[in-house]
Design a protein around this nucleic acid. Structure first.
Lengths: 137, 137
DNA sequence: GTAACTGCAAAATATTTGCATCCTT
DNA sequence: AAGGATGCAAATATTTTGCAGTTAC
């Protein structure tokens, strides 16, 4: 069943090879992907620039979201149902393994609310835990 | 009182102009600084490469820590007492204002523990909240 | 004096932009 | 046919590395 097709259609995007392929990667991926991962997995079938533009489009449409990291490499991961255009609800925790370096979306672990100082209004929060993942111990 | 001097001394680093100046910036700064901020504030008095190396050294020594962001620009901020060499305890929440774009260390807000799935061993966690800061409402 | 630190040059990487061409609708 | 998407080339920006000269201790 062409899930990629539906996602693109629903967001008013043209159905193209590149978009379908990149979307497929995300659907298949366990965790999050960096720009470099995508280039690697598509085997240079698409121009580097196209990958940049596709990722940017997907983020704008709310199909994927960005995950903050401390190593100058933005990670991207599929949004779940609650993400909508222009308004992400990226409320699950991400785990980055220090050993295998994979990033895993812990969909079942929600980001806890924190009490902010007076005057701070939260709109979105993200949490990244580093450590050793299940596979690497 | 030469606080910069003490910090460098304590960490076994040579006292140099560049290090003192960059450290001073962090001590004065409200929030976190990006590499670009530092270059701007030092008015090109130091080589770009020196800034990179100084920041790297400070991170290694546990004087500053990196803050994850989603915009391909690592932010740095002074560590508090609990950071030690090679082992950061960056356990407070960071707030990024959608309006003024400043990043603020909420030193009093600690990152809550989350219950991870079986097999995942946490070593370090970071939390970033985006929204509107106190000054911008 | 010696080891550590810095600046310069240059290489390696990463990202953005403009434009002509091709594809989707 | 028209607008959007892609590829290519090139401009920018960012980060890393090597080495020679300088500085802190």
């Amino acid at each position: 069943m062409e899930q990629q097709f539906n996602i693109l259609k629903k967001n008013g995007l043209s159905i193209t090879e590149g978009r379908k392929k990149i979307l497929e990667l995300f659907l298949d991926a366990e965790g999050a992907l960096a720009h470099a991962d995508i280039e690697k997995h598509t085997d240079a079938a698409f121009d580097r620039v196209t990958v940049y533009r596709t990722l940017q489009t997907f983020v704008e449409k709310g199909i994927i979201h960005q995950i903050p990291t401390t190593d100058n490499a933005i990670l991207y991961a599929l949004c779940k149902d609650r993400c909508e255009e222009g308004h992400h609800h990226d409320e699950h925790v991400h785990f980055i393994c220090d050993n295998c370096n994979k990033t895993i979306c812990l969909d079942d672990v929600t980001v806890p609310d924190v009490k902010l100082p007076k005057g701070f209004q939260p709109l979105q929060s993200a949490m990244v835990v580093k450590g050793i993942c299940d596979d690497c111990r």
